[in-house]
């Protein structure tokens, strides 16, 4: 799994590639914590290069969303969610908790 972060004026774009499971989810959590640790709470998570995500990844997303939405200071939105992962997120009821965009650039523009 690989995570890269790019800072834009109004938000941060975090791109995650590969597979997120119990072994690699801590790296995703760390990348998201690095962004929020800088006082930046508007985040686009680009999942276009993601092959797999288990509930360990969902757990990081949930923790970050809680943190970002506190005091209405921001939120984490998802972009380019692969079909299989979208199905798992739906099953877990997570699609209600995150806005999703087909294109990461549109997602960045939404902030």
């Amino acid at each position: 799994m690989e995570v890269t972060t790019k800072q834009f004026r109004n938000c941060d774009l975090v791109s995650v590639n590969g597979r997120v499971d119990s072994s690699t989810a801590p790296q995703l959590a760390e990348a998201l914590e690095n962004v929020t640790g800088n006082g930046r709470y508007k985040i686009v998570l680009d999942m276009g290069g993601l092959e797999y995500m288990s509930s360990a990844g969902f757990r990081s997303l949930l923790a970050s969303q809680r943190l970002c939405k506190r005091y209405n200071r921001g939120e984490i939105v998802l972009a380019s969610v692969p079909e299989r992962i979208q199905e798992a997120l739906e099953l877990a009821g997570f699609t209600e908790l995150f806005k999703t965009y087909a294109d990461p650039i549109d997602a960045v523009g939404s902030f």
């Binding site: 509930s55 969902f58 757990r59 949930l62 809680r66 939405k69 798992a88 099953l91 877990a92 009821g93």
Partner: peptide, 16 residues
């Protein structure tokens, strides 16, 4: 279906 603040992650693996 719980709201964000009420959402619990425990048990999600078994549920899936």
């Amino acid at each position: 279906k719980a709201a964000l603040s009420e959402r619990k992650i425990g048990g999600l693996g078994m549920y899936l």
